[in-house]
């Protein structure tokens, strides 16, 4: 039991002090009868390792959130990043959101993510279902066509030349279409569709339902978990992308997404263009107060943290791993 003790209550961000063993409620052991009782040293080592792993993941996030909520005074007193809340202030967020570049970038990021996710998901779901019916005409050929692209590709420069050749330089679609299809995701969906609701599909077919109808009314409702996971994968991909911006619209700061602002402004520490007449130009044009920078970091995190808990529980359903070998 002791292994669970050190970890059980490290739930909050303030998990610096492991709780005393006595504090934990009695629980029936789930240990199989044949397994020998744990040694104290072994359990302690396990608890410390896992606790350490959690701390490495969570402490940086904690520090960043606390610093973003700190007053300039608190930052000065701490000599930089703030470990412990010492005067909470939302000033950094107010200043950040009143800046036109950041507001713009937030809208751009949300827009690209929403449109891109819908496009990618629709294309992938259709393609995966189209390939999932065994014995349909040409599905082997199309599947091979797809899988080849996982191993052979033109690489960076030929792709760049094709996109710019089609007039994609500075265009929104250049950020979405070239990477809209993930063959890997299609394969996961296809493996899922090939094995679920076969009886239901068969029954619907006998009742005269066509494939569009079957996809919409049977397959999609019975595969919500995997669809949610795919939506997260695609959404995160679009939300996180910054390199295609660097390729296709590097100078147009009106079209920069949040990640590019994060890179320019926090990572590189440069001033942002277009902030001179924003009224808060001084705070943004020079290296900004630390809490402001941390607020930008938190802003890029928030959408992920909102969506993650809802989707994350599906990871365990074996959705992904079942398909990896399949």
């Amino acid at each position: 039991m002791t292994d669970t003790l050190t970890i059980e209550r490290t739930g909050g961000p303030a998990d610096a002090n492991p709780p005393a063993p006595q504090a934990v409620r009695k629980k029936k052991s789930e240990r199989p009868v044949w397994e020998e009782p744990p040694t104290i040293a072994g359990e302690a080592a396990k608890g410390i390792t896992l606790g350490g792993v959690l701390l490495i993941m969570l402490v940086p996030l904690w520090i960043i959130v606390v610093t973003s909520l700190s007053t300039q005074g608190a930052v000065n007193r701490a000599g930089g990043l703030v470990l412990w809340p010492d005067g909470i202030s939302f000033e950094a967020y107010r200043v950040m959101l009143s800046d036109s570049t950041v507001r713009n970038a937030l809208l751009v990021s949300l827009g690209i993510t929403a449109v891109g996710t819908v496009v990618s998901l629709a294309i992938s779901v259709m393609c995966a279902y189209g390939l999932s019916r065994s014995r349909s005409l040409g599905h082997r050929f199309i599947l091979t066509l797809l899988i080849i692209t996982m191993f052979v590709n033109g690489g960076l420069i030929p792709t760049f030349l094709v996109v710019t050749g089609l007039g994609g330089y500075g265009q929104w679609w250049a950020l979405i279409l070239p990477s809209a299809v993930s063959v890997f995701n299609i394969l996961i969906l296809r493996a899922f569709y090939s094995s679920t609701s076969l009886d239901l599909i068969e029954a619907a077919r006998i009742d005269g339902a066509g494939d569009w109808r079957i996809l919409w009314s049977i397959v999609l409702p019975t595969s919500r978990a995997v669809t949610a996971v795919m939506a997260l994968f695609y959404g995160v991909g679009y939300w996180n992308s910054f390199f295609n911006v660097m390729l296709y619209m590097p100078t147009d700061s009106e079209k920069w997404p949040l990640q590019y602002v994060l890179l320019t402004y926090v990572n590189r520490g440069n001033g942002l263009p277009g902030t001179v007449n924003g009224g808060f130009g001084d705070q943004f044009s020079q290296t900004a107060p630390l809490s402001l920078q941390m607020a930008v970091v938190v802003l890029t995190l928030i959408p992920l943290l909102i969506v993650y808990p809802f989707v994350q529980k599906h990871f365990r359903t074996g959705v992904l791993t079942g398909a990896i070998k399949g």
Partner: peptide, 18 residues
């Protein structure tokens, strides 16, 4: 199977182009 083939078309076109 024409609807099935039609469904794969957007993905196939994008992969062909890009």
């Amino acid at each position: 199977d024409r609807s099935l083939i039609l469904m794969t078309l957007p993905a196939v076109v994008l992969l062909l182009v890009f």
